[in-house]
């Protein structure tokens, strides 16, 4: 690497290279950004339908700070709501979409939107065996790891992250629906 006195020529060469790559990357960025955003949006829409299995139509609701989706069946009856929350896993945040039946106070479905857990270990939180245990749980259950929730062996932190996110989503939903709607 460069040692001793710095010649302007060196700085110029390096600057030119950085400028070229900046221009190139801004094109790549513009080209891929909409596709990546589309993936995220369609992943969201799919996730809403996945966590509200009986829903046929969804409606986007933004109430104050809270953003959620309402799910209706074919006849237009409200089945439940779907909303996101985040828990802290082993490597970072775990974003979870949770479907909730506010009338019976039950969990309808869970979908992991985003995580960066260790592949093959913490990443097993996305497997159905793990997620299915949350379906049908009542809001009043303890959600305690080991007792109430089966933990993925070797991935306690990841399992806790998901559980936290679900509890967080329930709390947020209860705040909105707390007064009854």
């Amino acid at each position: 690497m460069a040692k001793g006195k710095i010649e302007p020529r060196l700085v110029i060469v390096l600057t030119i290279i950085v400028m070229c790559s900046a221009v190139l990357l801004s094109f790549v960025h513009q080209w891929t950004e909409p596709i990546i955003a589309e993936h995220a949006a369609s992943a969201d829409a799919e996730a809403v339908l996945a966590v509200l299995p009986e829903a046929e139509e969804t409606e986007f609701v933004s109430a104050g700070d809270l953003i959620y989706y309402k799910g209706f069946d074919g006849a237009g009856n409200l089945i439940g709501i779907a909303l996101q929350d985040e828990g802290r896993g082993y490597e970072g945040g775990i974003r979870v979409m949770v479907g909730l039946d506010m009338e019976d106070e039950k969990v309808l479905g869970i979908d992991i939107l985003e995580h960066s857990e260790t592949p093959g270990l913490g990443s097993r939180i996305t497997e159905e065996d793990f997620l299915d245990q949350f379906v049908g749980k009542s809001f009043s259950d303890s959600f305690e790891l080991q007792n109430d929730i089966d933990v993925i062996s070797g991935a306690t932190a990841s399992s806790r992250g998901v559980t936290e996110a679900i509890k967080g989503a329930i709390d947020k939903a209860l705040e909105v629906y707390g007064g009854g709607e």
Partner: peptide, 29 residues
Amino acid sequence: LIPAEVRIPSFIVIIATFVTIVDYTSRAF
């Protein structure tokens, strides 16, 4: 075209550029 003194930093920038391309395209596709 690249003087020897800044060869490694220039290489790193060029490599980083290609990696950013791979990163965006793999996230997109």
